[in-house]
Amino acid sequence: MGVIPWVSWYALRRYSAYPLGSMAEAVTNTFFGVMRASVLLALWHARPGLGGYDAADAVTFSFLTQALIGPVQIFGGMELGQRIRTGDVAIDLHRPVDLQAWWLADDIGRATSTLLLRGVPPMLVGGLLFTLHWPGPGAAAAFAVSVVLAVLLSFALRYLVTLAMFWLHDERGIQAVALVLSLFLSGMIVPLVAFPGGIGDVARALPWSGLVQVPADVYLGHRTGGGLAAALGFQAAWAAGLLAAGRVLTRAAERRLEAQGG
């Protein structure tokens, strides 16, 4: 096994080592799923067919967002931040493995583990309590691709925020801003289809919509044919662009570290 697959595999095992903690998180995710579903049901009761969703779509959306919280780590942060704070990152940069590739591999392992441990329970419970929309084989396959792209996109965004710590005295400010953007513009709090007019259009063009709203649309079968290709292309393009930005920032961080003699 090459080192990069090994990093993923190791992260998958590491994040699965305490399944009880993850299951506990899944309880909270499920509870929030029930609440959000109820609120959206009330809205769709008042406005049937809002944004092209029916009531079952809205309920399914609520549980999907909860299932995706873990994999796309909507609340932000990554372990690399701790290593930058302590200066251990200097050791990472001296390894013959690319820093970004290493942490991306780690994040894929983490996302896989949380998808299984924290993603499945909310969907199952949601299916027991409400009428959920279940995808056909085509939509399921497209959804799988979309989730992978969402994880890449989430990593790319968080990597940029984390690397900003090389230049910032106190990183908590940028973390707070990143959190607000990620929660609101991903569709986590209210689906973007329910956003009024222009705000909704802007939100849907920004990368955060690729974290939750786009995978949910794909799951619900609202994107098919050319629309599906456009949706996946949208996620892939943002992911590629932001990962490239991450590479540039990694080089800059290396130079900065060398200049400091650290």
Partner: peptide, 22 residues
Amino acid sequence: GTALTAGLDVAGIMVLFSRTPR
């Protein structure tokens, strides 16, 4: 920043009521 994050819930409620009066 904390106030902004805490205000997200209000923003969510405002979005709901932008679509329906009750």
